[in-house]
């Protein structure tokens, strides 16, 4: 998945969780949970949305790799489609 595809996917999922979240204010290394005020439920809903759009299983042990934009882009760039 390209950077643009991942960002588009993230924006779409976030729109359903935190409509006021502005991804342009988040730097690559920011913890998204802090920057966008996502609680555990929000983060789980985010994972569900990413799972549904990407088809990846996203096991829980991978969650920390999704905490930052940088990590998320690397995660989906490396991932093969299920």
């Amino acid at each position: 998945m390209t950077k643009d595809e991942t960002m588009a996917m993230l924006a779409e999922v976030l729109a359903g969780i935190a409509p006021e979240a502005d991804l342009t204010t988040v730097t690559a290394k920011d913890d998204l949970r802090e920057a966008l005020d996502l609680d555990s439920m929000d983060f789980q809903n985010l994972v569900i949305g990413l799972h549904e759009r990407s088809g990846l299983p996203i096991p829980e042990e991978d969650y920390p790799r999704l905490f930052t934009l940088e990590g998320m882009l690397a995660y989906f760039a490396a991932a093969k489609r299920a």
Binding site: S40, M41, Q44, V47, I48, H51, E52, P57, I58, P59, E60
Partner: peptide, 17 residues
């Protein structure tokens, strides 16, 4: 919980809460 969630797709996973 970790073991249970490991066998579940994201929509079916439980939160510690």
């Amino acid at each position: 919980l970790d073991r249970t969630n490991a066998g579940r797709a994201p929509p079916d996973r439980l939160l510690p809460a």
